[in-house]
């Protein structure tokens, strides 16, 4: 299992390194159209061939991976912070505050997010650069995607507030801020990390969905999602296997995140078990 985890980390490091070094590794600009060779097969000049407009697929894959692998964690961080704030406040204070916060959470969960994203995207200014549009897309994902995590964090905080060590801390005169800083946040660390790692692949796939609808990253900037749009006409079975490479990269990256996530969950479970076996001790 440890080997698998190391392999997952290695794959993510390589993927991240290739994505960040796209400018140096890519044989051509992601937007350059080789109009004399559209839809070309792989060759020495174009390792993964060219797309319908003659753009180098390998260059677009590297730049697309950079967009998704850098911005998805950013969006995940935003959503985790928001979830921690709303969920933590609800669980910490309980009572009307919890009811109010959970109502907001339910409201967010009940909204059809895809339509909400489409609507929000539609009211944004049109004249923004592709780079800005992709940042805005991921920020939107971050600001709209926190509700499910907030519910889990609320439940975790609520349970913690009922625990003996919190009662002991309060009895010894810990103030609210000190209690949160020294007991609540450290004990929620596992949950928060788990929510963060869960969100990363979710946002990569969400952006892929948006891009598949043509509403994510705008031309000519690629993302893993926008590259997957080529597979939309796979029903007529384009025989070119290399067009599946972005899908393979997405599956591998998401799987690696999942492997790390499972490991985190296992560590968290074992630490919770330890804290149950040692009542009163901070976990």
């Amino acid at each position: 299992m440890k080997n698998v985890r190391i392999a997952a980390i290695a794959v993510l490091v390589v993927a991240m390194g290739a994505a960040l070094g796209a400018n140096y590794i890519a044989p051509a600009s992601y937007e350059q159209q080789f109009r004399e060779s559209p839809s070309a097969s792989p060759s020495a000049q174009h390792l993964l061939g060219t797309d319908d407009l003659g753009r180098d697929r390998f260059a677009r894959l590297l730049h697309g991976a950079r967009v998704s692998l850098v911005l998805a964690p950013l969006a995940a961080a935003i959503s985790t912070v928001l979830a921690a704030f709303f969920g933590g406040m609800a669980g910490y204070f309980g009572g009307w505050m919890e009811r109010w916060a959970l109502t907001v959470v339910d409201l967010f969960l009940s909204i059809p997010w895809l339509f909400l994203l489409i609507s929000v995207r539609a009211v944004l200014p049109l004249n923004i650069s592709p780079q800005a549009s992709v940042v805005v897309t991921f920020l939107l994902l971050g600001f709209l995607g926190w509700a499910a995590s907030a519910r889990i964090i609320c439940a975790g905080t609520r349970d913690m507030m009922k625990s003996e060590f919190v009662a002991l801390a309060r009895a010894t005169g810990f103030s609210g801020v000190k209690l949160v800083r020294l007991h609540v946040l450290p004990n929620l660390r596992g949950t928060l990390l788990a929510q963060f790692w869960i969100s990363v692949p979710v946002f990569i796939i969400t952006e892929a969905n948006l891009s598949a609808l043509g509403l994510g990253v705008s031309e000519p900037l690629p993302s893993l999602g926008s590259l997957l749009r080529e597979l939309q006409n796979v029903v007529t079975l384009r025989p070119e296997p290399w067009i599946f490479v972005p899908l393979a990269v997405l599956i591998v990256v998401v799987s690696c995140f999942q492997i790390l996530l499972n490991r985190l969950s296992m560590e968290r479970s074992s630490s919770e078990r330890t804290s149950i076996e040692r009542p009163g001790a901070p976990a």
Binding site: L53, A122, P130, L213, G214, S218, P220
Partner: peptide
């Protein structure tokens, strides 16, 4: 249409015009 827009973007870049392509529902 998105491909046409991307080609216009590239063509107009040659005369120094910057085009942003926006796809909306």
């Amino acid at each position: 249409r998105e491909s046409m827009a991307a080609m216009i973007q590239q063509d107009l870049k040659k005369i120094g015009i910057k085009v942003n392509v926006v796809s909306l529902d």
